[in-house]
Design a protein around this nucleic acid. Structure first.
Lengths: 150, 150
DNA sequence: ATTCCGATTGCGACCAGTTGCGACTACCGC
DNA sequence: GCGGTAGTCGCAACTGGTCGCAATCGGAAT
C-alpha cells in the first residue's frame, strides 16, 4: 500500500537553508531529484537524473550528499533484503516510519505503517534504556499474489 | 525453506549433510569459523580465519558460502546501520529473531528479543496477506551509557 | 564588488561484493 | 577402487561505495 503521508513535498532545500547547510549547484540538482522522485531510487539512478540537471555532478558527490541527507534524517536508506545484488535504495522521509516488505519472487516492494511498530520502538526505549533515533524494519517473503504459486 | 530454530550450537555441518548439500574442504573451514564465532564477524574476518584452516579459501568462496547459508536460513546478515562504512556482519542464527541496536556514539551492538516483534510480524502476515520468511529490524541511537553525555 | 576561508567538489585509487569461466573435485553408481 | 558429471572453486574483471587530496566555490564580512 503506497503510502499515507503528511507533509508537503519539495521542501528538502528549505531544510538545508534552515540548518545553515551550504547550498551548491550539485546539491541543488540532487535534492531536486529526491524531491520529485515518485519511488525508491538507487544511487546510480539518482546520479543519472542529477546529471541531466547539472552535468558536472560526480558519483562521489551523490554518495556524499545522500550520506548528508541520511545524517539529517531527511531520507531513509533501504537494502530491500538485497533482492537485486548489493545496492541500496533511497527515499524521502515523510510522515511516519514504515515497514518495507520485499517479495522474493516478483521483487515488488510494499510499505506498511503500523502502530505495532511504534509501540515496539517505545518498548525498546523503555526496556533497554536505549534512545532510538533511526530504525529500519525490512521483511522478505512472498506477497499476496505470489503466495498462491507455492 | 525457511525454518524456525531452537537448537544446539555447532551443527551447521550436520544441516548441510541433511539437506544433501555438498561438503567441501573450503566449506568445512568456513562453517567451522561460523560455528565457533563468539560475535558478529564481517566477511574479511571470516576469510582470514577460514584461511588459517585452509589456506586455499578464496574471497569469492566465502561470499558464495555466506549467501548459501543465508538462503538456507542458517545465518543472519546485518548492516548494523552502517556504523563503520558499508560492510556487513554475519551471525549464526539460533533461537528466535532478535532486534539489533547499534549505538551511534560508542559503536556497541546490543540484541533484544521481544514478543512485540513476533506479534508485529504476525500482524503483517494477516493485514498485508504477506508470507514472512526473513525479517531484520535494526535500530540506531544511543545506548544507556552514552545517553547521559547528550 | 572584492576578499577570504572553510566547506565542497572531481578525480583517481582504493575496499566490498559479484559474476563468468575454465579447471577441479565430491560423490553416486558401477 | 574407478569413472563421469554436476556442483564447486580460484581467478580476473567488473559494479557499488568510500577516501585523500588539490583545486574550486559559497557566502559572510568588508
Amino acid at each position: 500500500m503506497p503510502l499515507p503521508q503528511t507533509e508537503a513535498p519539495g521542501r528538502l532545500q528549505a531544510h538545508f537553508a534552515e540548518r545553515g547547510i551550504r547550498m551548491t549547484q550539485q546539491r541543488r540538482a540532487i535534492l531536486s531529484v529526491m524531491e520529485t522522485a515518485s519511488k525508491h531510487l538507487d544511487a546510480s539512478q539518482i546520479l543519472r537524473k542529477a546529471q541531466r540537471l547539472d552535468a558536472s555532478v560526480d558519483r562521489s558527490t551523490v554518495y556524499r550528499t545522500l550520506r548528508l541527507l541520511k545524517r539529517h534524517g531527511l531520507i531513509d536508506e533501504l537494502d530491500l533484503m538485497h533482492i537485486n545484488g548489493e545496492g541500496h535504495y533511497y527515499e524521502r522521509k515523510l510522515g511516519r516510519d514504515h515497514i518495507h516488505m520485499a517479495c522474493l519472487r516478483c521483487g515488488k516492494i510494499a510499505e506498511f505503517v503500523s502502530d505495532g511498530f511504534e509501540k515496539l520502538k517505545q518498548q525498546v526505549e523503555k526496556d533497554c534504556r536505549f534512545r532510538v533515533l533511526i530504525s529500519r524494519l525490512e521483511i522478505g517473503g512472498y506477497c499476496a499474489s505470489c503466495r498462491g504459486s507455492q
